[in-house]
Simulated scan of single mutants.
Amino acid sequence: MLFKYDRDTFYGMSTVGLSESLFERGQICGACFELRCVNDLRWCIPGTSIIVTVTNFCAPNYGFPADGGGHCNPPNKHFVLPIEAFEKIAIWKAGNMPIQYRRIKCRKEGGIRYTISGSGIFMSVLISNVAGAGDIVAVKVKGSRTGWLPMGRNWGQNWHINADLRNQPLSFEVTSSDGVTITSYNVAPKSWSYGQTFESKQFES
């Protein structure tokens, strides 16, 4: 099924950027966390929590020490939230707040989405809206004239391959970080083109 890709449609403001100590070089993109503000009765909103999906990286700033302004410097475990998400658990003007966090299974509407970009024989696929573990650790693609071809991770959940898969229906095999694999046949039709997004079946959540 063809979709127009729109990040806000998939995640809205329920996103988070992670510091280097948590980001795992982008492998954790797509994972879900539950966050709650703690240990500050003045600024925390009691009894609230939010569920967010990892989509961004908070780069370290080595111009500041980790305990003096370099919030995303190692070894800090830092979460950067949109204002709309932050205000559900704390008063915005409080700035940086202590939190409790736990990783949880992702619940998503619809199927896994594959946004195809590239040029010529270079193909890049952004995989999003993944339920269950949320983060993907291995991807294979298959055309009607090829066997299963492993794709390499570019960054986050962008996967790439150099292979001529044009004018072929595309099937995908994706494996999540908890070891579960889903194989979806003919996700994209023979007439697919770069810039399109397609949907396949989903992991259980």
Rank of each mutant, 00 (worst) to 15 (best):
T15P: 06
C106V: 00
N158Q: 12
F172R: 04
T181Y: 13
S117V: 15
A188W: 05
R166C: 06
L18Q: 00
F172M: 05
K93T: 13
Y101F: 00
C106P: 07
C44K: 09
A31R: 05
D164M: 01
P75A: 05
K201L: 12
C72K: 01
R102N: 06
G152R: 10
V52R: 01
L149K: 11
S177E: 08
P46Y: 03
T183E: 14
I83W: 09
Q196P: 02
R145S: 15
R113A: 11
G143P: 08
I136R: 00
F57K: 01
G47D: 02
R103L: 01
C29V: 13
D164N: 05
K105S: 05
F172A: 04
S124Y: 15
A85N: 01
A163N: 14
V139K: 02
L41W: 13
L149Y: 14
F122Y: 14
S177D: 12
Q100T: 06
A31T: 12
V180N: 15
M123Q: 09
G152P: 00
R113Q: 15
N154E: 12
Q196T: 05
E199I: 03
P46D: 03
S176T: 09
N39A: 13
I99V: 13
N96L: 09
I104C: 01
M151E: 04
F122M: 11
V141C: 12
W159H: 00
K4S: 15
W43T: 13
P75H: 04
G63V: 02
N129D: 14
I104F: 00
Q157W: 12
A188Y: 07
R107Q: 11
D8S: 12
V38E: 02
C37L: 08
C58G: 12
I45D: 01
V52K: 02
W192F: 09
S205Y: 11
A163E: 15
K4C: 15
I89D: 01
F198D: 06
R153P: 00
A138F: 13
N61T: 07
F33L: 05
P46V: 02
I127G: 04
G143N: 07
D178F: 07
P65N: 05
E204I: 14
M151S: 05
C44A: 08
D8L: 15
N154D: 14
F198R: 02
P74R: 00
F79M: 03
V180G: 08
V139P: 01
L81I: 08
A133W: 04
L126M: 11
T181A: 13
K142Q: 13
A188D: 04
G143D: 13
R113D: 10
S124V: 12
G70P: 00
H71V: 10
E34P: 05
I28K: 01
I161L: 11
I182N: 06
G110F: 09
I45W: 03
I121S: 15
K105N: 09
V125W: 01
S193Y: 05
C29T: 09
T181I: 11
S184A: 13
V180T: 12
K88I: 02
E84I: 12
K93A: 14
F57W: 10
Y11M: 09
